[in-house]
Design a protein around this nucleic acid. Structure first.
Lengths: 123, 123
DNA sequence: TCGACAGTTCTATAAGTTTCGAACTGTTAG
DNA sequence: CTAACAGTTCGAAACTTATAGAACTGTCGA
């Protein structure tokens, strides 16, 4: 995982609105627990409009939401899929796993040297 | 862990220089493998000057390094401790563990509801 | 006490980011 | 075909952040 791509992900999550969008999408990957005028969620995730309702509490999608979703998508954190009139959003599980791995590397400095060098090369 | 504090950490790591500083500090928590004019590292971590040498390749500490370290410290990611003429730097392992936990919550949406609600409250 | 060293703070400037409204595209329903 | 809906793009204004240089503080050795 390149440092650049981690920086891009951190930047994407460094805005409060975007972190809320991201957290919301993580909570709703299976479409559980969202109440919305449109009823049952598709398994691929909520629509942009549903993200808007739930995260921003707004009825109409402001351009800033498109902007934030694009930032998240460009950083590789979120995927979007057009489905008819709507666009469905979901988190990218690979990206999430990579970030988890980055922050989980507790013992890197204490590992035996050869193992350590190997770990370092991956970052 | 509050959303605000995650945002602050993400923001701190969203600059390439700061991510390199942070990664360097993680690699050197035990003082292994740093070659420096000052010789063996203290167990509490490298000095600001050593961070400067290794991350920036500069001999003299620019004000921007102080600025970046302060950002990391304010976000709670890095600790600094004055030791005589020097200031020693180290990562905050608690903060790191919290970020690891945030990104490791893969199965949050699929967890049983009561467990899920509990997990969500923590975020 | 003096000078040098290690770092920080301050100020100004340059660069980048967020937000807003308006105009735009593509899709579906009537 | 037309209107309405879902969402995106564009451009300008407002705001935030990074960088550089100069001045500053605190510590140590001579």
């Amino acid at each position: 995982m390149s440092a650049d791509s981690i920086v891009a992900m951190m930047k994407a999550l460094s805005d409060p609105t975007r972190l809320r969008i991201y957290s919301f999408l993580r909570e709703t990957c299976c479409g559980i627990g969202i109440e919305d005028r449109e009823g049952v969620l598709d398994a691929s995730g909520p629509t942009v409009g549903q993200v808007c309702c739930n995260v921003l509490g707004m009825d109409k999608i402001p351009s800033s939401l498109s902007f934030h979703l694009k930032e998240l998508r460009n950083a590789g954190l979120v995927r979007m899929e057009k489905r008819g009139k709507n666009v469905l959003c979901s988190v990218d599980r690979d990206a999430q796993a990579k970030l988890a791995a980055y922050f989980s590397a507790h013992e890197i400095c204490c590992a035996r040297e050869e193992k350590r060098d190997e770990l370092l090369r991956e970052l």
